[in-house]
Write a protein that binds this DNA or RNA. Sequence first.
DNA 1: TGCGAACGATACGGTTCGTCTCGTCCAAGA
DNA 2: TCTTGGACGAGACGAACCGTATCGTTCGCA
Lengths: 213, 213
Amino acid sequence: MASQQPARPAAPAPRPTRRSEKSRRAIYDAALALVVEAGYPRTTIEGIAARAGVGKQTIYRWWPSKAEVLMEAFLDLAGHPPRDAAQEPSAIPDTGDLAADLKAVLRATVDELKDPRFDAPSRALAAEGLVDEALGRQYVAKLLEPSLQLYVQRLRSAQEAGDLRPDLDPRIALELFVSPLAQRWLQHTGPITYAYTDTLVDYALYGLAPRSR
Amino acid sequence: MASQQPARPAAPAPRPTRRSEKSRRAIYDAALALVVEAGYPRTTIEGIAARAGVGKQTIYRWWPSKAEVLMEAFLDLAGHPPRDAAQEPSAIPDTGDLAADLKAVLRATVDELKDPRFDAPSRALAAEGLVDEALGRQYVAKLLEPSLQLYVQRLRSAQEAGDLRPDLDPRIALELFVSPLAQRWLQHTGPITYAYTDTLVDYALYGLAPRSR
DNA sequence: TGCGAACGATACGGTTCGTCTCGTCCAAGA
DNA sequence: TCTTGGACGAGACGAACCGTATCGTTCGCA
């Protein structure tokens, strides 16, 4: 009923229309560069402001935390420069050969995971998300789950084609080859190679138990 | 040739024999309690020292960082009631029914992951390890890999029994059901239930592709 | 053209860091 | 048993960042 009350007495709610686009971009660039060059723990809000040539208040006015700055900066990086071939929200190819399609996508993911411009910010956000549950859910919703849904679509298509058991849950099925790669990447539990991801697809599709019995 | 030089001019290398066992235990207890109660980011070295009734220098003398304190404290917690029936390096049961054995162990793991006394420190260390690679490798080597090797042993036994394809790599195979659970736990990408882990085992053992063709 | 909000810059108090320095206590060696 | 020196509890210290407040200044909108 009551239309709206200002969230906090001391926060007069800034008007986005008057926001400086130049400062926002400078902050994104500074945040991403610092995370890659200095590492996340040594990336400070004061450091971002100084490098961006911006007052601290400009950051505190628009973002609640350093993690949120980096999250937006990374989303901007991942979803923005594209035009030509957007890398993230593009569907998984469907050539009719499920195993080949999955292997191709996972190989591309391997390359991406090894690019420091992707690795450093993404890993930093994941780390913060482990301990800050609200941020973690944001990370999953905005960065992880959209990619996983592409697998869901491809697996559904495979089910219709009879290449996948019709009774299984695609959202769980994809985890058999995606999660192992994710864990090796995040926790350095093993090397990440094309051979490894190819193996994951084979193991997952055809099972660990002997097929002839 | 040169026998030994002090690592740092200002570090006279403390002698472990004179170390206070009482202080060490108090520091372990304080660190674990604070992480559970206040969360990792709000757990400070000063806070640990105050709660343990200990001087800050006593912590800085024996540990290089807050993460290392927590790591030792957690290792002490997990592996300490030793001698009798240590809970972590105990083998996976081998009843001859591979699927049942794996499901049982994963169900026990589900319970453990939901215990705050395990979840909070373990998650904090994992988070720090994502961004501090040296600590991450320590986390993997001391906490994660020993448990994974138990799966390797059980899977090897299954291979000998003919319950598992003889050509596959057990260290990779185990990831098909362990990594999905790990990711759901760490990143909150989905609910963690017995039904879920049971499903993982079934999917992994019998494969995603139709078995009759 | 004028108003006001966002801006860059910087001062401020507060917290935690990691180091250093006390005086005390206690265990190894004489 | 006594001496001695190193670890101990306590806390002062400067540095780094935090998040907030307050300057003029700039610039978008009416």
